[in-house]
């Protein structure tokens, strides 16, 4: 085995419903695999250190920061990026609500906000509490304060937060 072969791996995983097979340098993050190898440039590289949330995708249905996941670990697993939520001609209700509420300005953080909100709403459906939930043993009510706390892992430098909260609130109400 050459040095390069020792440091690379063959990986097969699902991306937005289709199986993808890649040979990757083990150092490749999921974010770089999506953007540089699969041409899916929705997920953004903001900080590349897990702090800004613009790279958020769903991994087996749960929101994660794709900049902190080595793609080599994902064999057999399933990834949904913003492209998998819905396209320009078939927006998901969440995406449509972001448009209706003007929930972005420059748009750089938006794919991460959308994937994070998608995962967050599922967490609420599962009854997960948050740091601002008063009663840990009761189902959480999705107040604006709950949305803000649960979306704390996604920064928006344009500060479109009030509109993001409104868009998520509307989506939750109509689910």
């Amino acid at each position: 085995m050459t040095t390069d072969e020792r440091h690379s791996s063959r990986v097969a995983f699902d991306v937005n419903g289709g199986r993808r097979e890649l040979t990757l340098d083990n150092r490749t993050t999921l974010l770089d695999a999506l953007r540089e190898r699969l041409g899916l440039i929705g997920a953004k590289k903001g900080c590349d250190h897990g702090q800004c949330g613009s790279c958020t995708v769903l991994l087996d249905g749960r929101r994660v920061k794709s900049c902190l996941v080595f793609a080599v670990t994902l064999d057999g697993r399933s990834v949904v990026s913003v492209e998998g939520l819905g396209g320009p001609d078939e927006l998901s209700p969440l995406q449509a609500a972001f448009v209706a509420h003007d929930a972005f300005q420059c748009g750089y953080c938006t794919p991460g906000q959308l994937c994070s909100a998608r995962g967050m709403l599922d967490e609420v459906t599962r009854g997960w509490p948050s740091a601002v939930t008063d009663d840990l043993t009761a189902p959480a009510e999705l107040t604006d304060a709950e949305i803000r706390e649960r979306m704390a892992g996604n920064l928006c430098r344009c500060a479109a937060y009030p509109h993001i909260v409104a868009a998520i609130q509307e989506t939750a109400a109509t689910r």
Partner: peptide, 21 residues
């Protein structure tokens, strides 16, 4: 139910995406 201090410490840490990993 039994160890709220533990749930609270976890929920006060990091972000939703990081806690999932």
């Amino acid at each position: 139910r039994d160890y709220p201090v533990l749930a609270r410490a976890l929920l006060a840490a990091a972000s939703g995406q990081l806690r999932n990993l």
